[in-house]
Write a protein that binds this DNA or RNA. Structure first.
Lengths: 257, 257
DNA sequence: GCTTGACCTTGACGCAGCGTCAACCCTCGA
DNA sequence: TCGAGGGTTGACGCTGCGTCAAGGTCAAGC
């Protein structure tokens, strides 16, 4: 007669594992001696080894039971099914590794290379880190929202940066973030922006962007939330007959008051 | 301002996941409105997407935190480490699949092919299933105990089965399992067995088997436990100067009484 | 104003397969 | 007789949430 640790040694498992198998009913509880010790026989050793053989082969414990007393065909069938699951798991891990590799090289945390390059160009124009982070967060959201259009959008953005007015605009940004709302630069900024908008409208570049309205609202809200100056600029543009920000549109000129 | 489910939708995760990230401190708890609802902004969406990007890439949540605010080098280092772990996991699964394949084809539940073939030969000799199972359990233990010697041992066993006396022996077994201890076949069995033993001793085939003594005792105990008839046969052989069963030895002939 | 259904809240269990205390009893050799 | 090294049950921990349960809230339609 064997104690639990002897049984475990023969089968090459831990004592804790044996008790676990008792708990889940995989290995029947044996007789106890007068002191309450479990007493095992050779049959238990054999069963335990068979359990471990299946478990080591990747069979979930919950299925070991059925496989142990299955016919030859059922057994083969079960094994096949489990192998299929293992294959799927391997594929999943391989996919994961690929994504990880992309993270390490090109894409930096949910951002395609084109956006990273765009942000770098802004940095080069003297835009401060705080604003860059705001842009980055926005682009992360956009990339997640419309992943298949991001490259087209970014190409357009890169092109926009060739416009001297656009460069001027970004040159103003850092200085404006913490200025007062009646700073003359605010109006200057609005002027430049309006020129750009008029040109965009003339080029027919305004309109459907593929975003859902709540998403546009979210981006707009972020801008307003970011700084009172941003809010002021929006107000100035609204007075001049523009609506929105993320998706800006020409509307009827509203009479003041 | 977003509710938790809107936030979750934008980032493509479940509400439960968001709350989980709050719990483990991965995503800071936002402000609440008057009803106690969490109110999120766009920055939260961006952070959540970055968290998911890392998590989807196989980064354990516990490490996402550090990677999110790591320098470029630390980041690359961390990613490399995680990739190493993923590689190891894939290898482990591939190993598992190989073992599973062996289970499906050759080895049947912890038994090498040679043992399975041996048991089949016993079946062909008319040995009953109950005894076959006893043998099988014993061989499972032996195979686990001395895996590198099992093939040699089995080769010997297969050879033994060519001996007509051995065939006779196995022919008797099934009928004897539930007979009384004073059945004449018991003595017949002992006689045949003794003839085989004498020949084995003459051929110098008795001795070291590579087993530890407690293991031999375990196998012997199993035999005795199996049937009173087995016990009786052991006793007869003991009277005739033999000791043991699994590892049988010639000892001084003991005077009766 | 009331109902209805969709959301929100916290709290807690469950999952796989044990590892690892804790607190206490049993056995065996010196 | 004592101490070391067994055994016993019970319970928490790990990962990353899924899934109730038992409420409070909100917007819409009657």
């Amino acid at each position: 007669m064997l104690t639990i640790s002897q049984l475990a040694r023969y089968a090459g498992v831990t004592v804790r594992a044996v008790r676990h198998y008792h708990q889940i009913g995989l290995l029947p509880e044996p007789e106890r001696n007068d002191s309450g010790y479990r007493t095992y026989n050779a049959a238990a050793v054999a069963r335990l080894i068979r359990i471990r053989t299946l478990a080591d082969a990747g069979v979930p414990l919950a299925r070991v039971q059925e496989l142990l007393d299955a016919s030859t065909e059922q057994f083969a069938e079960g094994i096949q099914e489990i192998d299929k699951e293992l294959r799927a798991e391997v594929r999943r891990l391989q996919d994961t590794r690929k994504r990880l590799a992309r993270l390490a090289t090109g894409d930096h945390l949910a951002l395609p290379q084109s956006v990273v390059a765009y942000l770098d160009r802004l940095r080069a124009l003297g835009v401060g880190e705080w604003y860059i982070e705001q842009e980055r967060d926005a682009w992360i959201m956009v990339a997640a929202q419309v992943p298949d259009q991001i490259e087209v959008v970014m190409a357009k953005k890169h092109e926009d940066l060739n416009d001297p007015d656009m460069v001027r605009l970004y040159g103003l940004i850092s200085g404006m973030l913490d200025c007062t709302v009646d700073d003359p630069r605010v109006v200057e900024f609005a002027d430049i922006l309006e020129r750009l908008l008029i040109r965009a409208v003339e080029a027919g570049e305004v309109g459907n962007d593929g975003f859902e309205e709540p998403f546009v609202d979210l981006l707009d809200a972020t801008v307003v939330e970011a700084s009172p100056v941003a809010e002021r600029i929006l107000a100035i543009l609204a007075e001049r007959g523009w609506k929105g920000w993320t998706r800006i549109e020409r509307v009827q000129k509203i009479s003041p008051g």
